[in-house]
Amino acid sequence: MLTIICGEDSIASRNYFLNQQKIFTEKGYEIVNIDYRLVLELDESEASSASLFTKKRIYFTSNLNKKVLKKLNVKTEKKIKDIITSNEIRLFDWEEETSARDLKSIKEIVIKELKPSQTIFKLLDSCYPGNLKQFITILKTISESTEDIFIFIMLARHMRNILITKLGERLPKLMSWQIAKLSNQAKYWKQENLINFYQGLHRIDVNSKTNRTPYSIKESLDILACYYLS
């Protein structure tokens, strides 16, 4: 059995992945973390063998979709399908910042997708000059239930895409309606201010990782927004 844990909310998906390890440990299973390169070597007899202290083995890996499933040949695809249909092998895979639609489509894979709340997208759409009040209000609301680091990651990624669009460069992985939406939001920004805002996000990232600021990520975003979105 293969379960893929994924979603744009990488923090929530990672926590879910780790929580599965905790749940199965409490049930008496042996947790085995393996490199994705070793997944094709999994054996039913080894997976089902019990020790003095545990029932069976549960395997956990990451990047299986990116590194293995999207590069299958006839032989390796058969092995993956054997794992999927096996009653003895149980494998969990974590895919960071990957939507279910981007996964390799193979029947009977169990997919657990952790999606961001719709409020985060409202926050991203509200990030433009002249819209300070709405941005601050949404940021305050969402920070009560969402980790600051996830809010920051989503905002930084979004503003990077707006900047790329503003500079006239292509975003090949996005659909036409997404690019049109970014272009519309980019019109509110002067290019210089947009570059400075994005550089401000970079400084927040560096300062938070090096403890160079007394402010939290959320407080730093408040300050940056007050300067550029008023």
Rank of each mutant, 00 (worst) to 15 (best):
E108V: 00
V110R: 14
N161V: 03
D148G: 11
V110I: 12
I149A: 00
L167R: 12
Q134Y: 02
S145N: 14
E108Q: 02
E96N: 07
R157V: 05
K122Q: 02
E144Y: 03
M159N: 10
S105C: 05
F152M: 13
G130H: 03
K115R: 04
A156F: 11
K115H: 01
I136H: 14
P116I: 05
K166G: 05
E96Y: 07
S143V: 09
K112Y: 00
L124G: 11
L114A: 13
A100E: 14
Q118V: 06
Y128I: 08
T141P: 03
Q118H: 11
S117F: 02
Q118I: 10
G130A: 05
S117Y: 04
I164S: 08
K107R: 04
R160H: 12
P116K: 04
K112A: 02
E96M: 04
K107N: 07
K115V: 03
I149C: 00
D125H: 03
E113M: 01
I142V: 12
L123D: 05
Y128L: 03
I149W: 00
I136W: 10
V110P: 00
L167Q: 12
I149Y: 01
I120N: 06
M154D: 11
E96S: 09
K133T: 12
L123F: 01
M154L: 14
S99N: 13
K107D: 06
K140M: 08
F121W: 14
I111S: 11
I153E: 06
R160E: 07
I164Y: 07
L124C: 15
I142K: 12
F150W: 13
R160S: 09
I111T: 13
I149H: 02
E113S: 01
L155M: 14
A156S: 13
R160V: 05
T98L: 10
K115Y: 00
G130E: 03
S99D: 10
G130Q: 05
P129W: 01
M159E: 08
P116F: 04
L123M: 01
I142L: 14
S99K: 15
F150H: 13
Q134D: 02
I106D: 06
I111N: 10
T165C: 09
A100Q: 13
H158W: 13
K122I: 00
I151K: 12
I120M: 13
K122N: 03
A156L: 10
E108T: 02
P129R: 01
L155S: 10
D148I: 02
I153W: 12
